[in-house]
Design a binder for these strands. Sequence first.
RNA 1: GUCCCCGUAGUUCAAUGGAUAGAAUAGGAGCCUUCUAAGCUCUAGAUCGUGGUUCGAUUCCACGCGGGGAUACCA
Length: 574
Amino acid sequence: MIGYVRDHIAGLLEAVGIGEQYITLTDPPQKKMGDVAFPVFQYAKELKKNPIEVANGLAEKFNQETEDTLVERAEAFGPYVNFFLNDRELASVVLNLGERVRPRVADSQGTIMIEFICANTHKAFHIGHLRNAILGESLVRLHEYAGYRVIRTTYGGDVGMHIAKCLWGIEHWQDDGYDAAKKNVLVSERMKFIGKAYAYGATQFEKDEKAQEEIKRYNEMIYQKDPGIADVYETTRSWSLENLERIYQLLDIRFDRYYFESEVFDRAIEIVSEGLANGIFEKSDGAVIFRGSAHDLHDRVFLNRAGLPTYEAKDLALAEKQFDEFHPDAIYHVIGPEQSEYLKVLFKTLEFTLPESKGKEFHIPYGWVDLKGVKMSSRTGDVVTAEDLIAEVKMSIREHMDSSEAKANVSSEEKERIIENVSMGAVKYAFLKTGRVNNITFDVQESISTSGDSGPYLLYIVARFKSILAKNTSDIRVSSVTVPDVLNPFERAVIMKLGEFEGVVHEAIEAKDPSKIAHYQFELSQVANQFYHECPVLDSEEMVRRFRLTLIETVVRTMEHGFDLLGITTVENM
RNA sequence: GUCCCCGUAGUUCAAUGGAUAGAAUAGGAGCCUUCUAAGCUCUAGAUCGUGGUUCGAUUCCACGCGGGGAUACCA
């Protein structure tokens, strides 16, 4: 429902004597039952009267006492009082509102840090990471729109056991694998080798005690920056970073600050050692732990028996650095649900080691990404990488493009740009349309679908409207447009939907869930598409043409804005 | 065992405590001398179970059942 209209009607209801606390407004189930509904149950209960009688009386009273240009009349439907809006006023309000739909640049809400894609080096970037990346970017944009100053950060695990497993794997898996990878110019091929080597190391770690001992030794060497492995470590690390950077570019993601575990582990040891002296931590079984169980949580190890920091300890030092460098009012960690319990312990620990962090650290979990029919596991190297998926989607979009008729005036560079934008739109929409906390069972076939509830469908609707605007020669400045007294059902449906935009964005920010926007984009597309089929624009009589052009211009602008919040770019042709 | 998420049409997803629980997809039938057929129109099907709170529960609470995750020296 349109925010302005809701506030307006609430005001009118108060004017006829309804207490604010009884007013909640909803949408009627059918168009013919009005535009806004007021359920009177609460109010009737207070009066100790039958809700149906109350609704009847109230509707009558409202009509007698209220003079309003926007609300034409009220009518009782059972225990509801429904309001009918004047077409002309409604259209004026919404189209005017369309003018105001723009990213805000205000900087008044404070500073937040959004930390996402905490991808480890030496590991494949799979579709789970892809969801994180796309979600994180959208959350950044939503909060920027809401008026926050947003610091974009990522934290890479470039030291620790997973690297040790990989380096050990490189050494033992294939005699000439590493040399072959070095000779290969393709980063993606190099990363495939890294993935295989990691998988081998991880499997041997579990199967073979001797390998396990050696890998632990490798881990110590990494922390000690041992010259014996320095070269292979640095080389493979830079491959990983190069690969990540390529993916960020593909996704149109940037960061203000890249944090690495390697820059915090020294300080991590200090923090825990100091905390041990202060009684925050305690020794247990040779390790240094935080007694989470004393706070209804669970115990965690911060320094292992070898005196090396676990990721728990490193996170303490990271937080210290983040607050020190940016003084954020809040830090949102966009991390998978499996870390949810861990993060509770971490945040509790931070209250002791870094009191200023109290109440400012938040976990933004998101659902798991499973492959339909397949079990994904980076331990066995059995993953669908982001790159594989994007390549597959691109191929499918390209096929469509080649067989499409509407590419007459499109140059080959333009065509490549379209394929790029539509493909990324398809992938991003596929991940964002599901509610944030819900798991996604990902179907590659479905993700390359271009019909129905998909990115390409939405972009297609926009492209068709843009095409009309491009062909237009009429003057559609605000001063030249007249709103008709009566809207047809298709025009009306589009206008009602357009009016919901602001409220939806608000909900999305509140819930930190871009899927609300994605759903809205789809709904707006559907009603706009019906309008497209039923209402000729360019062939209409002058007044109607100008009005409808204004309407579709607002649709395009609103869609583009919604897409921008999702990190998706529209196209002119497809 | 304990703790945390999640259970809605065949499938993938919606639904600030409100009226007849919506879409998409899969199947069937139509629609291109008409602003792009990546489109449109018509056609069936669902709230895991049992209680509780409420005028009203998919939504909130309790207990089951089912799926996933976490639970000490990996991240």
